[in-house]
Amino acid sequence: MFSKRLARILCVILFVLINIALLSISAKHPHRYTIVDRVVMAGIVPFQEGVTRTMHFCESMWHHYFYLVAVREECDRLKGMLAGAQMEKSRYLESELACQRLRKLLEMKSEVPHRMLPARVVGLDPSGWFKTVFINKGTGDGVSNGMAVIASGGIVGRVIGASGRYAKVLLIIDRSSAIDALVQRTRSRGIVEGETSESCRFKYIVRKADIKIEDTVISSGLDGLFPKGLRVGAISEISRPSSGLFQEVKVRPFVDFTRLEEVLVILE
């Protein structure tokens, strides 16, 4: 009755309709968890898990061991960067400290009404018994014998020899150095002589002179070397012997000679 071709077409249409009907039923009940699902899950997922774990293991191996070569390189690079940064930090710190010192010198320069020349300490005396330093300014820069040298704290010493580019400065703590000075508060006069690295002797202070510990000693300007009013040091010790005309006084210089780096030479 029906030809074979017609029967095949009808079959296809029937299957399509059945398929649509089943999809419609399934769409009405989404996420249904059947026993088939469980069986499939129980059978497949362990393999999935195994494969995934193996993949993670391999990935982990790569990242933690083989990739360490790259990490090492990165580490070396970062260490280099860190060292560079530390060097730079040190340089900045040094610059800042130099800036502070120079600022103090500049303040000093503006306080003292004389023409001054900044210089750097480049060498020290070869023996511990004599106290001299070398500065990097000489006759070519206008420096000559007898010129006063000061730092931010106060008087450093005087020039005792100069070549074209360098000069030798006798510090006030040297035994052969002497400055005509006076106590700022009471105007008592005396001579400050070098004694040890930490202190000077303030000689010829009469017994009746009113002086106290921590009184400031300044240059009197009468020696013709140091301008009047430059700070020398503070009185650190006073003793009045039972006999004699004078008191025995010690002065602690304001300048720290162990850390002397920059100085000013008074050119006039």
Binding site: G128, W129, F130, R175, S176, E195, T196
Partner: peptide, 22 residues
Amino acid sequence: QHIIFCISVAAPYQLLAAQTGS
């Protein structure tokens, strides 16, 4: 050498005391 230096600067007691250890 130190003795000669010491004599040359006519080192007082304080300087001698400061330098002896060194």
